[in-house]
Design a protein around this nucleic acid. Structure first.
Lengths: 339, 339
DNA sequence: CTTAACATGTAAATCGTTTTCAGCTAGCTA
DNA sequence: TAGCTAGCTGAAAACGATTTACATGTTAAG
């Protein structure tokens, strides 16, 4: 806890603070002899340079703020983990901004950049946390930033995610290939772009197969288990029940399965259930959930690399960068029942 | 991105930088008139004080580093979420230190305090991330710190968790009350204190009930689903099979259930399964898992409050602080089968 | 009218680094 | 030997706030 500074080291080693600084950050500029002398003292004294002082001078905090609606969401947690790993290897630390979906907290965390506490932003979510002047070029108004696992309808922003349209199409195509014709969709909240993209993919797949798109089969959920339950309840009330239910995340799929089992339906013999995300537990529910796997680690790594590249001062190709999804066929889907 | 400083504001408002500083941090020292004048300019210019400059002078970073072995663990994520919330309301930000269990990364993050980037530590895990001189008083060698959800065998350190001994006892007592006599335990890794405490509670409960403690019924797991599977395999090989299996976390319980179902055992008719943690998905596996609920939000809130108190310069009662657990009886446990 | 007390504001030092610029030394070339 | 270069090193000026010590002006009391 005692506070030994660069000047103390300099005095002990009988050199100037400048030389000590050089020993620590650009050793190639220092002669072998003084290098060793200074290093020895640094070790002996257990000197740790004060990062705040350095930050003030260099105008780099060494921090990246991650703005996340919910860290307890396993998808976000998985991505963050990879991000943290990449950041740490590059000498950056991650500031955790769990916003609980509140815009004022998003703003608060975005402000850390203006106040010098962070150099860049990883944004989970689709809302721009700044006031933007539409008359000025966007890129001059925002700090280095990467949009993780969501979509912002702005092609100048660097975005990393799975191609939700294609992924949803693939999921629905699989169900169609199993003979399903009445395929329901349980979406996410209306203002979530990735959910809308999945809906687009769902509709596209049906249309391509010449299946009529029935809006009664589209229920809006909110990505929670209980909304899966209630959405499934609604679907079961339909005169013509679906033979397959495509849930836009695994949580809701778990809710759907819970209700179907409770009501005595067999999965997949009576109704197939498809999820999205491939969270850890998807594999362990009964029956194991068929779902779309998102490569969380790769998403995280790609995000942090693109951000680091910007922080190094390099331009990065703007727009969406897609990572490959994978359809995980497990036991919750099967051939459509004969009518 | 333009950089307007306190001096610019001072110049525009025709006051000194000192006055601007006071307007922002101790407005009561400034006359109404200048207060308004300065505030107006601050707003107009969208001035954000540079936190690094302030930190350098005040020697407070406004950051707290959370050292966590695994943020994707829902227990940790739940606690962190509450922590982040409390920290933010108090004007602190959380630095996320996901260490993946590596001691060098724990050290790295602990070092953020010595380098001035963080003012305090929230430690998930039981390893002291500093070099400690045993001859000196401990408290003078460590920064403000709270140990979250684990145990360190040192009564000077502030610790917040559930009483694992009592909780495990309660779980086992419940199984005993259901008529079980051969109760197996699947523990966590050997070096995890909380797992050892749960083992202690397990043994205590058996002894109190006059049930012989059979070491064949104690299997060491590692808190993963697969270790639940393999541990259950081992238990099924025993000549005298257990009628109940107490898993020291829910992940392993999920693994156990998976295996039991695969091998054709009925849960709980043949074998009861008990978990620990009450993660979100415990409720949704089939059958729903009986488990020990940990109050994640309260743990997080208590941790951050105790840390904030220390950061304010106040002493805090050292040692363990227990929060109440709750036995959640669901469908995975039932009366012991007749022999 | 004088003086003390108080309210308000300013100047300047300070926090711990990095980095520019200049200076010094030694070795080499012409 | 003078001049030049290359290689090191040091002095000092930032960076952007806070805070101490002090100056000024105002009010109130005696």
């Amino acid at each position: 806890m005692a506070t030994v500074g660069i000047k103390d080291i300099a005095a002990l080693a009988k050199v100037s603070p400048a030389t000590v600084s050089r020993v620590l950050s650009s050793p190639e500029l220092v002669s072998k002899k003084t290098l060793n002398k200074v290093k020895k003292i640094v070790d002996e004294m257990g000197y740790r340079p004060n990062r705040i002082g350095a930050s003030l001078r260099t105008r780099k905090s060494g921090n990246i703020v991650a703005i996340i609606p919910d860290i307890t969401n396993p998808v976000n947690a998985g991505i963050i983990r990879a991000i943290e790993q990449g950041a740490q290897s590059a000498g950056y630390s991650i500031l955790l901004g769990d916003t609980q979906g509140l815009i004022e907290r998003e703003r608060h965390y975005a402000d850390l950049v203006s106040s010098g506490q962070a150099d860049g932003i990883l944004l989970f979510g689709s809302r721009m946390p700044f006031k933007i002047d539409p008359n000025l070029p966007l890129l001059e108004q925002i700090p280095p930033m990467v949009n993780a696992n969501e979509s912002m309808n702005n092609d100048e922003i660097v975005q990393v995610a799975v191609d939700n349209v294609a992924a949803a199409s693939a999921a629905v195509n699989y169900l169609i290939s199993q003979g399903h014709q009445r395929i329901a969709a349980i979406t996410g909240p209306i203002d979530v772009p990735s959910s809308n993209e999945r809906l687009e993919g769902y509709i596209l797949a049906l249309q391509n197969a010449g299946i009529e798109v029935d809006s009664n089969l589209q229920i809006r959920g909110d990505y929670t288990v209980v909304s899966g339950v209630s959405s499934a309840e609604q679907l079961l009330l339909l005169r013509q029940r679906p033979t397959a239910i495509f849930c836009f995340n695994d949580e809701m799929a778990i809710g759907v399965m819970k209700l179907l089992k409770k009501q005595g339906f067999m999965i997949p013999e009576d109704i197939s259930v498809m999820g999205f995300d491939d969270i850890h537990y998807a594999e362990f529910v009964t029956p194991a959930l068929t779902t779309v796997h998102q490569p969380l680690k790769e998403i995280g790594t790609t995000c942090i690399n693109l951000l680091l590249e910007q922080l190094r001062g390099n331009k990065v190709k703007p727009g969406k960068q897609f990572l490959p999804f994978e359809l995980k066929v497990r036991a919750s889907t099967g051939p459509a029942p004969r009518p």
